[in-house]
C-alpha cells in the first residue's frame, strides 16, 4: 500500500506505507485518518530536499527492528551503531545533516535521529571550545570571572 507525503514547499512523494511508518508521526496520523488516505500527508516543517533524504534512509532501513523507547538509562548510553551504508549516507555537508536531524526529529524517525546525533557528536569530538564556537557561529558569553571558575573546575573532567 502506498502513502503520499507533501513537503513544506509543496512537493509530493509517494512511498510504501511500511516505509513511511518508520516515522512515528506518520504512523499515528495514518491510524487517525484511515478513511482519508487520498490526500497527501502534509509535513509543514520538512523541505523537499530533506524529505527525499529521509525517505532514502527509511527505504534502506525498512526491515530493521524498531528501537525500543523504554530502554533504561544505561543502555541509552551505548554508542550508536553505524553500518557502511549509514556512513555513506552521512557524507553530506553539515548544514544538510543538521537540517536532516531537525527533519528526523519533527517526523520522529528515531533511528535517523540517533544517527544524526551520533554524527553531531562526532563533529564536536576533540574540538576546542573556540573551534566549536567558530563552527556553530556562536559567541562566548562568559565573563572573565566565570571563565576562571570554569578553568578551575576543569580539573574534575580530566581522566
Amino acid at each position: 500500500m502506498k502513502v503520499t507525503l507533501e513537503s513544506s514547499d509543496g512537493q509530493v512523494f509517494t512511498v510504501d506505507k511500511e516505509v513511511a511508518e518508520l516515522s512515528v508521526i506518520i504512523k499515528e496520523m495514518l491510524v487517525i485518518e484511515q478513511a482519508n488516505q487520498d490526500h497527501p500527508i502534509p509535513l509543514l516543517n520538512v523541505g523537499a530536499v530533506e524529505l527525499a533524504k529521509v525517505i532514502e534512509y527509511c527505504e534502506h532501513h525498512r526491515n530493521d527492528p524498531t528501537i525500543d523507547d523504554d530502554e533504561d538509562y544505561d543502555s541509552r548510553k551505548k554508542p550508536i551503531e553505524m553500518d557502511d551504508w549509514d556512513k555513506q549516507f552521512t557524507i553530506v555537508n553539515k548544514e544538510m545533516m543538521f537540517e536532516l536531524i531537525l527533519a528526523a526529529n519533527s517526523m520522529q524517525v528515531k533511528p535517523l535521529l540517533h544517527l544524526g546525533c551520533r554524527y553531531a557528536a562526532d563533529i564536536v569530538k576533540r574540538m576546542s571550545p573556540t573551534e566549536i564556537r567558530d563552527l556553530f557561529q556562536i559567541d562566548d558569553d562568559f565573563t572573565p570571572e566565570e571563565q576562571d571558575k570554569i578553568e578551575w573546575e576543569k580539573q574534575w573532567t580530566k581522566l
Partner: peptide
Amino acid sequence: QLKRQDLAQCARVN
C-alpha cells in the same frame, strides 16, 4: 555519545 573530555570542552563554549 560524548566522552567526558569532549563534554568538558563543550561546557566551555558558552
